[in-house]
Amino acid sequence: MRVRRLGPLVRGLAAGLAALALGGAALAGDFPNLNGERYADVRVDVRPLIAQGNGPQAEALRADLTAALRRSFADRLGGRGPSLVVLIRGLSLPPYAGGQTMGRGIGGGTQTDYLDGEALLVGRRGEVLGRHPQLTATPSSYGGAWYDPASERRRVTVIADIYAEWLRRQLPVD
């Protein structure tokens, strides 16, 4: 029997998922209903990524995710209610070089990109009124041809779009 060791990212994701399963994390039901109010604004906080040394990529993600959230929540923005702030804690874009076979002899890529964050409902005085953690995973191939120099940048855009769309589905609707 061969034992495989988990890399730090996989261990971290496994620990995070285990913590969610054990409770203590906010569920979408813990995110308060706005009772007809609209969000005052939507913001993306990527300071944890910048602190990890991912400055240019974090800034690209901030721009892409902000735009995606504004599109996804367009009908819920512009009010006097609390702000929706998305705090991003992790972005993983592993090197991708086309389809991998994983030793099975069949094609198809197996690399996955991850975006880990938490939506915060922030009141006018800065108090956190609700939390909703979210981990989004997408195939690395969604960025297009691996040999295209723009592929990695497109991967950031794609995962931001998917994150925003799923967040829209997960948060309560009035």
Rank of each mutant, 00 (worst) to 15 (best):
T66N: 12
Y147C: 00
P56W: 02
A74H: 14
S140A: 15
A119S: 10
Q57G: 10
A119D: 02
M1W: 03
R4H: 11
L115E: 05
G126F: 07
L9V: 14
V122L: 05
V128R: 08
R38V: 01
Y39H: 10
P8F: 05
A150P: 00
H132L: 15
L17Q: 13
I50C: 09
N33A: 10
L87M: 13
L61Y: 08
Y114D: 00
N54P: 00
P48D: 08
T136E: 13
G7C: 10
I106C: 03
I159F: 04
G78P: 06
P56F: 02
L87V: 14
A15M: 04
I159L: 03
A19V: 07
R47G: 08
R89Y: 11
T157F: 00
E118D: 09
P48W: 05
G130Q: 02
P8Q: 10
G98M: 07
R70L: 07
G103H: 00
Y39A: 05
G81P: 08
M1I: 11
G143H: 02
P48A: 09
S151R: 11
A160R: 01
F31V: 03
L120I: 04
P82G: 06
L65S: 09
Y163T: 13
L77R: 09
R154S: 02
L129M: 12
G98C: 08
G99D: 15
G23R: 07
G55H: 03
P8E: 14
G143R: 04
R5D: 12
G24Y: 05
E37F: 03
R169T: 09
D113G: 04
V3F: 13
A97Q: 11
Y96E: 03
G109V: 01
L22T: 08
P95W: 01
V156C: 05
D45Y: 08
G24E: 07
G98Y: 03
F73L: 15
A28E: 08
A67E: 14
S151N: 12
R4E: 14
L84D: 04
W166P: 00
A40K: 12
L84F: 06
I162P: 00
L22M: 09
E59Y: 10
A150R: 12
D174M: 00
A21E: 10
E127T: 03
T138H: 00
A18M: 05
G126L: 08
Q57K: 09
L17N: 12
M1K: 07
G117E: 04
V42Q: 10
A119K: 05
I50D: 10
L87G: 09
A58C: 11
P32W: 03
S141I: 01
L20T: 10
Y163S: 05
S72I: 00
V10R: 12
A26Y: 01
G16L: 11
A74R: 14
I50S: 10
Q52G: 11
E152I: 05
Q170I: 00
